[in-house]
Structures are given as structure tokens and as C-alpha cells.
Simulated assay, not measured.
Amino acid sequence: MEFKGGELIFLVSTLIIGLITIALVALFGVFQKKKKALLIDRDETKKRFEREIAETQIEIREETLRNISWELHDNIGQLLTLAKIQLQNATPENISEVSETITKGLTEVRALSKLINPEAIKNIKLGDAVQLEIDRFNRLNFINSTLIISGDEQIINKKSSIIIFRILQEFFSNTIKHSKASNLRVQLKFTDTELEVVAADDGVGFSSLENEKKGIGLENIKNRAKLIGASAVFTSEVNKGTSLKIVYKL
């Protein structure tokens, strides 16, 4: 069959339009599938983040309860025992010692109440929360601790603040339990664009081989940091201490 010029052009045009239409439909289908996959992934990421926040809050609560238990037993309990002994042997000359011991006990109870009050902890700034930990370490003579805050302290997203605080809690716990360190130094450095957190001890440190054994714990900390778009980097050498650096974009 022989086509005239106009018919041939019409057929070719129709064929091209048909192919373009099919291609567009196929591309639209691919786009819709990718969009659906992205939405599902976003929802899963959000759910995973919320689960992590919930787990982190539980861990902070558990750590706080452990701290309260230690402080009641090792500090306030001893002060009350001392006050009891002093009262049993009280004389007009040493009654001031009893008063001093009781006053110190009351001060410790007030400090402890800040940890017990969930509303106070929930609404506290990151710097204040870390300062409470530092004060406790010094009060119980766990380790000589200092906190330095530089720059203009900014309001941090509450969920991000929870994650950062829990990461620091884990570092503090490892330092006190395993590092044999004498000093702990924490710095919160605020700039216009980021918060840099550095925690460092002067303990025994650990080698690359030991680092592999600790890998799961360190990886968990790094993964938690990633959840809030932050980075967490450990540095350690045998007999030269360990440091943790967190960088969080404001």
C-alpha cells in the first residue's frame, strides 16, 4: 500500500505522539512508585526517630533513678548516720557540728530534688542538665569535673537536646566506671550555626583493638547522633584519655 505524503506525515506524527504518550505514562508510573517509596521511607524514619526518643527518655529516667539511689545511699545516708552519731554524743560545745551536718544534708536533698522532679528535668536547658551531672560528680567525689559554656547559649530542639544529653550520659558513665580518670572536662561551644560539644577525660584510654570490642556501644552513639543530623567522633589513646566531640547544626 502506498501512502501519500500527507498521510505518511500523519501516520508518523501519530506514532511519535503515541510513543511519547506511552513514555510519559511509564515515567509517571515510575515517579509515583518512587514518590510512594519515599513517603513510606519518610514515615518509617519518623517512627524510628520517635521510638529512639522514647527509648532515650526511658534510659535517662533509669540512669537518673540509679543516680538517686547511689546518692541516697552513699551521700545523704552517710550524712544522716553521722548526724545521728553526733546527736548521741552532743554537748553544748559540739552542737554546732550537728547543725552543720544537718544543714549539709538539707542542701544535698535540695540538689537531689532537682533530679527527682520530672517537670524540672523536662524543661531544663542542655547546659543546666549537664551542670547538674557535673555538680553531682563533684559532690560525691566521683571525679573532678568542670563544665565550660562559651558563646551565646541558644535554644536547642527539645528532642535533639535529649539525644545529646543521653550521649553525654553514656560517656560520663564509661568514664567513671572504666577510665580510672581523675579529671573530666566538658565544653559546650555555641556559634551562630552550630553547637560543638567536647567531653574529655584523662583516663587509661583504649587501643584500636579494644575499640573493636567497644564497637557496638560506640556505633550506637554515632547512630543516635545521625538521627538529629549531628556527628559524634571518639578519640582515644592508651594512657592518654578519651574524648568525644559532637557537632550539631543549629
Rank of each mutant, 00 (worst) to 15 (best):
F171A: 06
T45A: 15
N67E: 09
T21C: 14
E2D: 08
D152W: 00
D41E: 15
K46I: 09
K177Y: 02
A26G: 09
I155M: 12
R185L: 08
S150L: 10
N220E: 13
P92V: 05
E62P: 00
I134A: 06
N75H: 15
R48V: 08
E219S: 13
T193F: 02
Q32M: 12
V198E: 05
I76G: 01
A90S: 14
F137I: 07
K4Y: 10
E119H: 11
I58W: 00
Q88C: 01
N123F: 12
I162P: 11
G151V: 04
T14Y: 05
L184W: 02
F31Y: 14
T64Q: 07
E153K: 06
K36M: 08
I246F: 02
I246R: 02
I162Q: 10
R110I: 00
I17V: 14
I143N: 05
V25D: 04
E100T: 09
A120G: 00
V238D: 01
Q78K: 15
I85Q: 12
A37N: 14
G6L: 04
L112E: 04
I156W: 05
V233P: 00
K177W: 01
G127Q: 11
D201S: 08
H178C: 07
S99P: 00
S173T: 15
I134Q: 02
T14W: 07
G205F: 13
I149T: 15
G29T: 12
E59C: 03
A232N: 07
T175G: 03
Q86N: 12
N157Y: 06
E50A: 11
T64E: 02
I134C: 05
R61T: 14
G151D: 09
I221T: 13
S161C: 03
N89G: 13
L184C: 05
N220R: 13
S179E: 15
L132I: 04
D201V: 01
L79R: 06
I176H: 02
E50I: 09
D128H: 07
S150Q: 10
V233T: 11
N67H: 07
A90V: 15
G105D: 02
E62K: 14
T235M: 06
N89K: 04
A26K: 12
N67C: 00
I58D: 09
L65W: 08
E71S: 11
I134M: 01
V25R: 14
L184M: 04
F10M: 09
I40V: 14
K213G: 10
L39M: 13
Q57D: 03
E194T: 05
I148H: 06
P118W: 04
I53F: 04
W70G: 07
D43C: 06
F10P: 00
S13P: 00
I149G: 02
L39D: 12
Q86R: 11
E196S: 15
Q32S: 07
F31M: 03
V233K: 10
V30M: 07
S160R: 05
L218Y: 11
E62V: 09
R136E: 12
T45L: 14
S145M: 10
A90T: 09
I148N: 12
K33W: 08
I17P: 01
N239E: 15
F49A: 07
E2C: 03
F49T: 05
I116D: 02
D201R: 03
L87S: 14
F3D: 06
R42C: 00
V109D: 06
A23H: 03
K36Y: 06
D128S: 10
S150Y: 01
